[in-house]
Structures are given as C-alpha cells and as structure tokens.
Nucleic acid binder design. Sequence first.
DNA 1: GCTTAATCGAGACGGTACGTCGTGTCTTTTC
DNA 2: GAAAAGACACGACGTACCGTCTCGATTAAGC
Lengths: 189, 189, 189, 189
Amino acid sequence: MRRSDASRRAILLAAFELVGEVGYAKLTIEGIAARAGVGKQTIYRWWPSKGAVLFDAFLALSEDPQGDPALPDTGDLEADLKLVLRATVAELSDPRYDAPMRALTAAMLNDPALAAEYEQRLDAPMRALKRARLRSAQEAGQLPSEADLDLAVDLLWSPLMRRWLERAELTPAFADAVVETALAGLRAR
Amino acid sequence: MRRSDASRRAILLAAFELVGEVGYAKLTIEGIAARAGVGKQTIYRWWPSKGAVLFDAFLALSEDPQGDPALPDTGDLEADLKLVLRATVAELSDPRYDAPMRALTAAMLNDPALAAEYEQRLDAPMRALKRARLRSAQEAGQLPSEADLDLAVDLLWSPLMRRWLERAELTPAFADAVVETALAGLRAR
Amino acid sequence: MRRSDASRRAILLAAFELVGEVGYAKLTIEGIAARAGVGKQTIYRWWPSKGAVLFDAFLALSEDPQGDPALPDTGDLEADLKLVLRATVAELSDPRYDAPMRALTAAMLNDPALAAEYEQRLDAPMRALKRARLRSAQEAGQLPSEADLDLAVDLLWSPLMRRWLERAELTPAFADAVVETALAGLRAR
Amino acid sequence: MRRSDASRRAILLAAFELVGEVGYAKLTIEGIAARAGVGKQTIYRWWPSKGAVLFDAFLALSEDPQGDPALPDTGDLEADLKLVLRATVAELSDPRYDAPMRALTAAMLNDPALAAEYEQRLDAPMRALKRARLRSAQEAGQLPSEADLDLAVDLLWSPLMRRWLERAELTPAFADAVVETALAGLRAR
DNA sequence: GCTTAATCGAGACGGTACGTCGTGTCTTTTC
DNA sequence: GAAAAGACACGACGTACCGTCTCGATTAAGC
C-alpha cells in the first residue's frame, strides 16, 4: 500500500498544534501520534526524528498559501525593505508562529542534517528572493554594483533575528532604523 | 556539611565535557552524575535543570582566566573592531566551544528563565563593553554623537551570529566586510 | 481462484522449521510468512491462530508416512506394550520432535478450541488404537474382562508424558517398569 | 535503597489475579505493573520474565498457609492415598487454581530455566513427601521393600495430571481407581 | 480463448506491548 | 550530617507483531 496522505496531514497538523501548546521540549512522538489518531510506527516510518516532523509541518504551512513569493518592488528600495522588515517583525511577534519557530530553531541547533535541509529548502529560496530584490536595486542605480549582496542580506535581517532569539525588544521602528543604517553603509562604499 | 566545592567542580566539568562528546540532546543528569562520581541528588539539590548546570559550567569557564575584560581601544575604531570580530569568528569556529555554545543556545531557546539569566549575567555585561568602546569612538569624533549604539552593536555582531547558527561560511574577511559596511552606515547618518 | 497448495505447504514447513529454531514463544505469523515467501493475509485467510498453523503442520507430518496405524499384536501383550512404549520414549527424546511437540502442547494449554481439535483428530484416534490392543488382550485372556481400558491407557502412557513434560529422566528401562507394574495392577483385580 | 516488600507483594498478587482473569497469553508485564501500582522497571529489576513472576506468585501462595506439609499417615496406605488424590482432583477442578496452574505449566514448557526452578523448589519437595509416605508403608509391610518409589509416585499422580492437562473428565472415582490399580501392581511384584 | 473474480505477494495502517532509559523523589548506608 | 548509591513511580523511547486493509499482478474457472 502506498503512503496515506490523510495520516501525513493529520501528523503535521498535530505536531504544529502541539508544539504551540506544550513547547518543543515537551513535544513527544507519542503525543503527536495520539493527537493525530495514528500509530507511532506511521511516524517513525516516514520521519527520522521529531525535528523532521516539525520541519515538514513548517514546509507544508509555507507552501499552502502560494501567493506571489517575490518581494515587493515599487522602485523605492528603502520603502520596500521597510515594508518587508516590518512584516517580518510582525510575524516574529505573532505568538502563533513564535513557539513553532523557536522549536524548529532548537531542533536545527542540535541536528546538522536538519539544519542542512532547512538551509536548502526554506532559507536558500528566501535568500534568493532577497538578493533578487537587491540586484534589481543595483540595476536601478539605487545600490552600487559592487555591493556584496550576501553581506547585505545578513546586515538587514540578522539584527531582527538576534533580537527575536534573545527575546529582546523588537519594534517596527527598529526595523526602519536597521534598513536606513544598513542601506547607508552599502551605498557609501 | 555545606556545599562540597569538589563535587560542584566535578559536576560542571563533567557537564562541559559530556556536552562536547554527546551533544545537548543526549546530555543527561544521570550521565553527568556518573561522570562526576556524584549522587544525582547532589545535582538536583543545587541546580533546577540541566540547562542551568550547563550555564554554570559556562560561567565558570568565562570567569576563570580573568584578563582585562575591556575591548581594545587604540584610538582606531575600525581596526579595533576588526580585531575583536576576527577573534569572535575564531572562537565560534573552535570546535571546543562550538558544541557547548550550541547546547547553551538550545537550552535558552526553550527556557525563558535561563535565557533571562544569560542575558543578565553574560550578554548584558558584554554588550556594555561593546557600547563603551563605541561611546569612546563617539567622544573621539569617529562616530556621530547621535548614533544608536544598541543598533550599532546588533549591526556589527548579529551577522556573525547568524552565520554561526546556521553553520554558514564564517571567515575573517566576512568580519572585516561587516565592520566596514556597518561603520560606513553609522557614520553616514 | 482456489487455495494455493504450494503456499499451504510452504507455510506449514516454515512454521515447523521456525518453531524448532526459535521456540513457540518467539514464533510469529510475520516470521512464518517471511520464511514461506507468502503474504500475511494468506495465513490469516486460512488459519485462525498460530497454534492452528502449528497443529496443521503436525497433522501433515503425522499423515505423511501412512504406515499401518495399528499397534503390534503378537499375542504377547507385555512384549508388545514394551515395544510401543520404548518407541514412544525414543520419539519423545528426539530433538526434532521435542521442540514442536512442546510448542503444540503450550498452544493447547491456553487455547481450549485447539485442545479440543487435538483431542478429536490426534489424541482420540491414538487412544482408540491403544484400547483396541488392550481389548484384543482381554479377548485372549491376558487381561480381565472387567478391566477399565481408559484407566489402563492412562496408567501406561501418562507416566512417560509426565517425565517428558518436566524434562525428567526418561529411559527405555522406565518404560519397561511402567508396563510391568501397570499390567500387574490391571491383572490383579 | 533495598527492595520494597510492599511492591513485591503487590506485584505477585496482581499477577495472580490477572492470570485468573485474562489467562496467560494475555497477561502482560504492563498490566501487572498497572494493577500493582508499580513501575514496569520494578518488575524488570527483580524478575527475568513474566513466567518468573507467576512462579513467585505461586511460591508465595504455597508457603503462606504453612500447615503440616506431611501427607496423612493413618497406617492404611490405600485410604490415605485416596484421600490425598481426591484432594488433588478437587484442587485441579477449582477454577481459582486452574487458570494460574495452566499458565505456570505453559510458562515452564517454553522456559527450561523456569522448569528447573519449579522442579527444585516445588516439585521435588512434594515428591519427597510422597515418597516418605510410601516408604512408611514399606516399613509397615504394606508395600514390598523392593518397590520403586519414584515409579510409584508417577503411576499414582501422572494419570490425574494427564486428564487435567487435556481437560478430560477428572472425578474422585477415577482417583480411587488409580490408587487401587496402581497399588495392586506395586504389591504384586 | 477470454473474461473475470478470487487469491496471491507485498506492505502500510491503527494499535498494544515490549524492554530500556531518564526523570525527579525518596530512603538507606557510609564516611 | 551531608554525600554516594540506588530503588521507586512515572513517562517516553524506538521496535516488533498483531490483525485489518488496500494495492496491482497472477491465474484458473466458467462463459
């Protein structure tokens, strides 16, 4: 018999809900199986670890509402970036995503294989979109053509990530300040 | 009898060694007790969780070789920052510190109390030193007086952290580029 | 399509071999199916339990070499019985039959339905043969006509069974002694 | 800490009760632990198998009501034996003992180590008592001095066992007949 | 000889129990 | 009189089988 899609969905949903309710440390395979109405073996058959289940749950969520994945490009780089980073701040502050995201981060920290898959399937595509927007700005003359776009992405987004990770204050105003300062630095060279 | 310092040291050492050998996920209180030649109760008596033990093990390490904690201040901000960030890159790449640091990060991710203690006892003092160096640069006219120093610290250090966290490439050259671009941005405004 | 005889044979053979290798407790339907190169459903379709498979494997073995089933009747009851009981001792001591027989006994102990089928299809016919030989002795005047033949059968065979069951010493000499003493008792009344 | 006697008793009682309720095949360590209010590990720590638990439960029962263990000796061997065998028939027919006894028998069938312990700690002492009664009869001239007492014990008791094992009819009258015929045989030689 | 329905192998499924490991608490024994 | 040693109730682990259930792919019977 081939893989049951109903079970797959139920497992991913259960994992996502449970991690929000009890946190990653108290998330158990048994709990996921019970909530999903599924045998434990069905989980072990298809995923190597609870981190992997969580990752797939994330992936499913990211792929579901398939809007246009590209970043906005109105021609005004600074305005567009502020918009995007403010949205990022909002998402990181949303309690519905905070717990699962912390869980996934913790899972990746201690599982290089999972981290590699994350990098490949979620992080890299997102970074490509970001670089694409910056390249478009270069072509429009809003950014020097010799600017290092990978460095630019890190300068713009990692401060947000740092504050989220350590539960520090994370406001839209901070996002604006990051965009202004980072862009100034990139243009100055 | 009051707290046995020999046991305390043995426990912290065992925790530090074990986390390097088996990783945080497989680190157990029983394992630490066995390796330290100590009863489990002795650990439970003095620490609330294995994350707390790990944190203390870290603290002990940080405090042991008590050199001058201040960041170098030769008068040349850019050179000083490159020196410090290159040292940070080297430390993050050292396998002796990589595993324990990842473990501690994972512990904090799922334990806000631990994260708060970390922020208070390790992170805040370090950020204070960084801000002090930047303030000194302001006084020397190397940085505008209205620059946001908290933002500056994040712009400078969080890109390194991001790359370490996701096991991306982390080189001294990247550290230099971050310093140059971030400083340019801070000066331009 | 009707029942595949090749599969049936393969299943019975696999069950018989496996029970000799791993014992009844570790005998599994999955193991039998795998060894026989057969789907599990093919076993469940035709047998209600692993005890029943084992029983059929036994039946197949008992029926294969269809010699004359009757007990020897030379006219000398004591000599004939000694011959038969010595043969029983030899069979019970043969390691090829010991393991499967213990398995079947264990299966029957906890499955009255199986026990009833055993009694009907294997035990009763055998007891009938034994009674027939004793009746022949009665007719020849070697045994009193009022002797209880069912009691006689138990007196003669159950001591062997007892010693086999508890893995006690079981020798041809013991068989002889049983025959002599039991016959003496039966004749004395 | 040393072994908890309360847990030990609770486990043996639970095992005994459960085997009577669900039978040996459906008796589980988890079930025993749950019924006894005990962790599974406490069972695994002290017993190697569920058969061993059952055996100890039996042993505890046998040793509890420590009446005079000797068989009755009124001077009349035949009467005494009939008394004892009728009592055995009654016990074998008592549903309270039937299930546990079948369970123990099944356990021993597939576990030689358990069978050896049974032989040593329960069967051998009982056989010694039986032989003692028969030896007393020899001294009283009711049995020939050259009679094989081990054979005698098997002739007397194993027919009962056989009928119990195969769920055949087992009556006091059968016990009497066995005693009469077996004794006649033993005396005749 | 062609269809067609039962049977086959394979193996996924929801479950139960396995035997092990670790948790945090508690008690005993030793130094 | 605190520390080691480790038993305890508990809960989760990851595995093995249970008995049921779909899957195509034969395969022999009856049209």
